[in-house]
Simulated assay, not measured.
Amino acid sequence: MVRSLKHPSRQDSDRRLGMRLTFAVTAVALFSVPFILLLVLVVASFAPLNDLDEGIARWMHAYVLADPDYARFLQFWTDALGPNTWRVLVVAAALWAWYRGARRLAVWAVVTIAVSGLLNLAVKEIVDRARPVLPDPVSWAPGASFPSGHAMAAATGTSVLVLMLLPRLGSRAARISAWALAAALTLFVAYTRVALGVHWLSDVVAGVTLGVVVTAGTAAGFEGWRRDEGRRPAEPYREGVEPEAFRR
């Protein structure tokens, strides 16, 4: 009789966990849609997208060109919030997690930021899209244009850091503020790349969405590991990928 009473509870737990994992996979798929669409349109040189990119690039470039102080401001912050900054911050957070005994969490963080960077380089190599060529450029960047490495690194880095630190943020307001700050930083970095004339709008949109996809995908994988370990189901966006981390 006792065994039969426990069985439905286990089934309910498994069902709830399955729903959470399904939601995570669905979120990954949904964020993949805009990236895949942009990838197809860019590779096909879709004229309306090219016209939109060129129009926005020239409009933003003209505004920045008219204000050298603003151009220097954007250049400073686009460098300060570049990919290497996010890599250093994530590795530092991973070392902290390792020291606190959350070694799987540390590995997840490093793997996620590394996969994001390698995937960005791979897609750039495959697509090989040219960067904007504007009169009187105010900035310069090497390599191919699609997707934006700065935008993708910012999206991945901020998301990873928030997911690692959520267990230390007790209140709902603190969690919302953390996600809001992550979104604001990511969007600001994306804006600087277009305003400085080194990326098209579609480049930064693709970078942000692909960064989110990478982070969501590895977070879903981490939740799967938690299930294999018999740990309670977690809601990463609210509790972090490892809720037990840093609480002691």
Rank of each mutant, 00 (worst) to 15 (best):
P68E: 09
V110P: 10
E229C: 05
A93N: 09
L52N: 08
A130S: 12
I176V: 12
P167Y: 14
E223S: 00
D67V: 10
A106G: 11
A94N: 08
L196K: 08
M1T: 15
A180Y: 09
D69T: 15
V138P: 05
D228Q: 00
P8G: 03
Q11L: 09
F46T: 04
A109V: 01
F46H: 12
P137D: 12
R15F: 00
L74H: 13
E244A: 15
R193H: 05
S159N: 07
I56T: 15
R232M: 07
A154V: 14
T186V: 11
P147C: 10
L201T: 07
A71H: 10
G211M: 03
A94W: 09
R248E: 15
R247A: 07
L41F: 04
D79E: 14
A106W: 10
L105V: 14
M19F: 00
A94D: 09
V194S: 11
T192M: 05
M152K: 08
P142S: 13
L95E: 04
A66H: 13
L95K: 01
A57R: 03
N120V: 01
T215P: 01
L81W: 05
R232D: 15
V107C: 11
R131K: 02
G197Y: 07
S177L: 12
Y191H: 13
I36C: 01
V123I: 15
A206E: 07
I126H: 09
A174G: 15
V204H: 03
W98Y: 14
G217Y: 01
Y63N: 14
R131T: 02
A27R: 03
S4R: 14
L49Q: 05
A66W: 13
A174H: 09
V208Q: 03
A155Q: 06
A44Q: 07
T209E: 07
A122V: 10
V107N: 10
Y63A: 15
D79K: 00
T26R: 00
D51T: 02
A102T: 13
V110F: 09
S45R: 11
P233F: 01
R72C: 15
L39W: 00
Y99D: 11
E54A: 14
R131Q: 05
A173K: 15
K6M: 04
L201H: 04
G211S: 01
R16M: 00
R15D: 04
G143H: 03
V28H: 03
H7Y: 03
P142F: 10
V111G: 02
P167D: 15
L38A: 06
I56D: 13
R103K: 13
E239L: 03
G240Y: 01
A29K: 08
R131W: 06
W225T: 00
L65F: 12
L21N: 07
T78M: 08
V64G: 13
D53Y: 10
T192I: 11
S159H: 09
L95V: 12
L39V: 08
V91F: 04
W86N: 04
A24N: 02
